[in-house]
Amino acid sequence: MPDAEPRPEPFIQQTAPAALDGLRARLRGTRWPDSPEDAGWSQGTDLTWLRELVAYWAEDFDWPAQEKALSRFPRFRVPLGGLGIHYVHVRAAEPARDAMPLILSHGWPDSFWRYTKVIPLLTDPGAHGADPADAFDVVVPDVPGFGYSDRPTDKALDSIAVAGLWSELMSVLGYARFGAAGGDIGSHVSRYLALDHPDRVVAVHRTDGGLPVPGGDPAGLTTEERAWVRDVAAWGATEGAYAAVHRTKPQTAAVGLNDSPAGLAAWIVEKLQAWSDCGGEIERSFTKDEILTNVMLYWLTGTIGSSMRMYRANAAIPPAQLARRVEVPSGFSLFAGDIVRPPRAWLERSTNLVSLTEPARGGHFAAFEEPELYAQELRAFFRPYRTAAKG
């Protein structure tokens, strides 16, 4: 007898009061480390700022209100590949009857949270001063091991495997052809969607090149590409300690991060500060409520360790996979405040590049930092491919 078709079920997010009481007790009992005077963010998270955040988290942060706000989106879970996958699915507002399906893939340290500001702009552009004909049906899944998707019990899935799950998810939802977009790890996932499912992905948009290591003879690279490779190496030496931990010994760090909410916040907010276009002032890009909502999605689900393990899985992807060229029409929006932006020559070498823009504002979390600008980028890029998505 054939297996039954995977059946999505509505997902209701509701946190038990006891879980919040336990969290507040841990926050109030934080055992703080010392810090050099005037260290600021130079050696990691600014301890003075973090203490302020933790005090707000313990005494004033209204998680039930944030939870209610997240529940405004239709959310579901569906079994795929032996795992329960959580996703947001918002169909385009009327009168957009021919909306283009679009799957958005998040990265670390976030979840479906990354796209919560931009979803309404994409599904109902007419209500936000844009052309209603540019509407999308938007799907935003949580990667296995992140958010409200199941954690793999044996080993983390790599980006190739996740792309396979996303292709299956879009089939379950009735979309034969669709667009794909993403940032950070989501760029990798979107890339493999285009590589492994080119008959289904009509076009792919990314906000970074994924910091690959170009293969082959370095002498064959342009001067600009060689400079970029040096920049990537320099960035890794000064900013990449977190990734080395994730790739090699994630379980060691996970013990402390999963036990201490202050420690978890420190690990996450340091990246929000360093990678956003905030000029060093994190609250220029994110409010405390926004930051803590992101952190809460890790704390309540206990997924910091499982999310980190995906780095280890991706590090084991064979070099031949990394060297494949994407032939699906590819677009990049390289936001001004993002990290180590690849040169055009590399994007042309590694993809069928049809669009490259450089928005003047926004960083690594562009969809959250600059949702209006990000939505404009996606509308413009995918506009020529809407007819193809109907095939």
Rank of each mutant, 00 (worst) to 15 (best):
13 Q>L: 14
16 A>P: 11
16 A>I: 04
17 P>Y: 07
19 A>L: 15
22 G>V: 07
26 R>F: 06
28 R>N: 13
30 T>G: 10
32 W>C: 05
32 W>S: 06
38 D>L: 12
40 G>A: 00
43 Q>W: 12
43 Q>Y: 13
44 G>C: 01
46 D>T: 06
46 D>A: 07
47 L>H: 04
50 L>E: 08
50 L>I: 05
51 R>M: 07
52 E>G: 15
53 L>V: 15
57 W>R: 07
59 E>V: 09
63 W>P: 10
64 P>N: 07
68 K>W: 12
70 L>R: 12
71 S>D: 09
74 P>Y: 10
75 R>L: 09
81 G>S: 08
82 G>H: 09
84 G>F: 06
94 E>Q: 14
95 P>D: 02
95 P>I: 00
97 R>M: 12
98 D>W: 03
105 S>P: 09
105 S>M: 14
107 G>K: 04
107 G>W: 03
108 W>M: 07
110 D>H: 11
112 F>G: 10
113 W>F: 14
114 R>N: 12
114 R>K: 14
116 T>W: 13
117 K>Y: 07
118 V>H: 01
126 G>H: 02
127 A>P: 06
133 A>P: 08
136 F>L: 07
139 V>R: 04
140 V>R: 01
144 P>M: 04
144 P>Q: 04
145 G>T: 02
146 F>K: 00
147 G>D: 03
149 S>D: 04
149 S>F: 03
163 A>L: 07
164 G>V: 09
165 L>V: 08
167 S>W: 09
170 M>C: 06
172 V>L: 11
172 V>Y: 10
175 Y>I: 13
179 G>M: 06
186 G>E: 03
189 V>R: 01
192 Y>D: 04
193 L>C: 10
194 A>H: 04
206 R>S: 14
206 R>F: 12
209 G>S: 11
210 G>F: 14
210 G>H: 12
210 G>V: 13
210 G>N: 08
211 L>D: 04
213 V>R: 15
213 V>W: 15
216 G>L: 09
219 A>V: 13
227 A>G: 15
229 V>F: 04
231 D>M: 07
239 E>V: 10
241 A>K: 10
244 A>E: 14
253 A>D: 05
255 V>L: 13
260 S>A: 02
262 A>H: 09
263 G>S: 02
264 L>G: 00
270 E>N: 04
272 L>C: 00
273 Q>V: 00
275 W>D: 06
275 W>K: 03
281 E>Q: 10
283 E>S: 09
285 S>L: 05
288 K>T: 11
288 K>C: 01
293 T>N: 11
295 V>T: 01
296 M>N: 05
307 S>M: 02
316 A>V: 01
318 P>E: 11
320 A>V: 14
323 A>C: 02
323 A>G: 05
324 R>P: 09
330 S>I: 00
331 G>C: 04
340 V>A: 08
343 P>E: 02
347 L>D: 04
348 E>D: 03
355 S>W: 13
358 E>I: 08
359 P>T: 09
361 R>C: 09
363 G>C: 03
365 F>W: 05
368 F>E: 07
371 P>W: 07
374 Y>L: 11
376 Q>N: 15
379 R>V: 07
380 A>T: 14
382 F>C: 11
384 P>Y: 01
390 K>C: 05
390 K>P: 08
391 G>K: 14
